[in-house]
Amino acid sequence: MTHVFSISSAVFLAIVSLLHVYWALGGKWGTDSVIPTTADHSRRTFSPRRGGTIAVACLLFCAFYILLAQSGYLSPIIAPSLIRWGCMLCAAVFILRAVGDFNYIGFFKKVKNTKFARQDTVLFSPLCLWLGISFLLALF
């Protein structure tokens, strides 16, 4: 069962990492529903910059590597203890992302009637919870 979590999560992380690179290079597909907006739909809560988007892509790729290395699918290129700590950090980050900020993102958000909020409820938060569980399972 852990194989299903590890492999599916790694594939997802690789795809989302590449999607962030696409956005950083100017791609527009999907950008209308991936950034939270205010309740009245008048403005985005933040405007990502190219450098930040590339940084997120790199972090997602690092998470991809950490998950596969911890699961035994890739040889560790850094100390196994660092991979284990990275795995714990990734689990915490993804689970906290699923819980959210209690305003615009996560399962417990207040703003629920925007395009992003609907996508977040149906797709983004459940996927973050799945990823968090995948990292936890990889630890054991």
Rank of each mutant, 00 (worst) to 15 (best):
residue 1 M to T: 07
residue 1 M to P: 01
residue 2 T to F: 07
residue 3 H to G: 07
residue 4 V to L: 13
residue 5 F to N: 02
residue 8 S to R: 01
residue 9 S to I: 04
residue 10 A to G: 14
residue 11 V to E: 00
residue 12 F to K: 00
residue 16 V to Q: 02
residue 19 L to D: 09
residue 19 L to K: 12
residue 21 V to N: 06
residue 23 W to K: 07
residue 23 W to Y: 11
residue 25 L to T: 08
residue 25 L to G: 05
residue 26 G to D: 12
residue 27 G to M: 08
residue 27 G to Y: 11
residue 30 G to Q: 03
residue 30 G to F: 03
residue 31 T to A: 05
residue 31 T to N: 10
residue 32 D to Y: 03
residue 36 P to Y: 06
residue 38 T to K: 11
residue 41 H to S: 13
residue 42 S to N: 06
residue 43 R to C: 00
residue 45 T to A: 04
residue 45 T to W: 02
residue 45 T to F: 02
residue 46 F to T: 00
residue 46 F to Y: 14
residue 49 R to I: 10
residue 49 R to H: 11
residue 50 R to I: 14
residue 53 T to C: 03
residue 53 T to G: 03
residue 54 I to L: 15
residue 59 L to I: 13
residue 60 L to P: 03
residue 60 L to T: 02
residue 63 A to E: 12
residue 64 F to W: 15
residue 67 L to G: 11
residue 68 L to Q: 07
residue 70 Q to P: 00
residue 71 S to Q: 01
residue 71 S to W: 04
residue 72 G to N: 05
residue 73 Y to K: 05
residue 74 L to V: 02
residue 75 S to N: 11
residue 76 P to Y: 07
residue 77 I to E: 01
residue 77 I to V: 15
residue 78 I to G: 00
residue 83 I to T: 04
residue 85 W to C: 05
residue 85 W to E: 06
residue 86 G to E: 09
residue 91 A to M: 12
residue 92 A to Y: 06
residue 93 V to E: 11
residue 93 V to A: 13
residue 96 L to E: 00
residue 98 A to M: 05
residue 99 V to L: 14
residue 99 V to C: 06
residue 99 V to R: 01
residue 101 D to M: 08
residue 103 N to V: 10
residue 103 N to I: 05
residue 104 Y to R: 08
residue 106 G to P: 09
residue 107 F to Y: 14
residue 110 K to A: 15
residue 110 K to R: 15
residue 110 K to M: 13
residue 111 V to G: 12
residue 113 N to Y: 03
residue 113 N to S: 14
residue 115 K to P: 14
residue 115 K to R: 10
residue 117 A to I: 12
residue 117 A to N: 12
residue 118 R to W: 15
residue 119 Q to S: 14
residue 120 D to M: 07
residue 120 D to R: 07
residue 120 D to T: 04
residue 122 V to M: 10
residue 127 L to V: 13
residue 127 L to C: 12
residue 129 L to H: 03
residue 130 W to L: 14
residue 130 W to V: 09
residue 130 W to N: 08
residue 131 L to I: 08
residue 132 G to K: 02
residue 132 G to A: 04
residue 135 F to P: 01
residue 135 F to K: 02
residue 136 L to V: 09
residue 138 A to Q: 02
residue 139 L to E: 04
